[in-house]
Write a protein that binds this DNA or RNA. Structure first.
Lengths: 148, 148
DNA sequence: TATTGTTATACTCTATAACTATA
DNA sequence: TATAGTTATAGAGTATAACAATA
């Protein structure tokens, strides 16, 4: 179990090919292109993230967990969204301590637009030949399913 | 030049294949894995970015431009790095208003470690079959060179 | 007694404006 | 007169602690 040297390639080993692929990929995906989508609509990353997870009404605490921040922050973030008429606080039927945050009609419209914008593949990917796009999709499918 | 409809596929068009590839790729690269590399060494994103561009001595203003922040911020960021003994301020020979920020020996050691850590491809890529890694590398080469 | 969300508060990060020393 | 870096200061983001309502 504790061999000092590894002569043969191993599962998950850092190959030179993977290293080079990563070196090529990083500048294509960083910084994240979706950041400016939020900025265009005056949504800070936290507010954008909150909107993103509001496909259905969520408790404040759920939002805090999703954003990896404290509950007390969510109060301010939701305040901002509420002032803009994008969300509203609703009482939770099963527990009167909990407040559910739900999109308004306007919030739903904006969220739909944002999600559409985020799903548009970046220029470098759109410019690939059709066969490269297909190959890339299949490789990423294998990468994603191997991770589960 | 201004046709109302586009019957044929165009350069840069959003194909369904590209859309799906992007949908698969995003969760693999976001959030950026290198964020925790900085955190492990108590380097906020800004300080990490500064260290990253200090492959050679740089003027404060150059660092500000690279970080997309104000000059006045760089003072504080460099202060922090200097207190930790990672960089030092040097006079610029050609212009006495300018201060050059240079890595110390310790700063050079840390930077080397950080850059090495950042270059390690993520698990999902290391786990790909060798032929997938090669195909991915070649596709990304074409994507990158087409963008130039 | 524990938990949800709020408030009060402090700390950090960043931006603007005034200042200095150079140019 | 303009520029590089600094300082002073204010605003936003996030964390902790104490609190009210509810479980």
């Amino acid at each position: 179990m504790s061999k000092t040297t590894a002569a043969k390639p191993q599962r998950g080993e850092v190959t030179e090919t993977a290293r080079e692929a990563w070196r090529l990929l990083a500048p294509l995906v960083y910084p994240p292109p979706f950041l400016h989508v939020g900025r265009e609509h005056d949504l800070r990353p936290a507010a954008f993230g909150a909107l993103r997870m509001l496909d259905q009404p969520r408790a404040m605490g759920e939002i805090a967990t999703y954003l990896h921040c404290d509950n007390s922050n969510v109060t301010g973030i939701v305040d901002g969204l509420e002032e803009r008429g994008l969300v509203e606080r609703q009482p939770a039927p099963h527990d009167r301590r909990v407040k559910l945050i739900a999109l308004t009609a306007e919030g739903r419209r904006l969220r739909t637009r944002l999600m559409k914008a985020v799903e548009v593949p970046p220029e470098w990917m759109r410019g690939l030949a059709a066969e490269d796009q297909r190959a890339l999709r299949e490789i990423l499918q294998r990468a994603g399913s191997a991770r589960d």
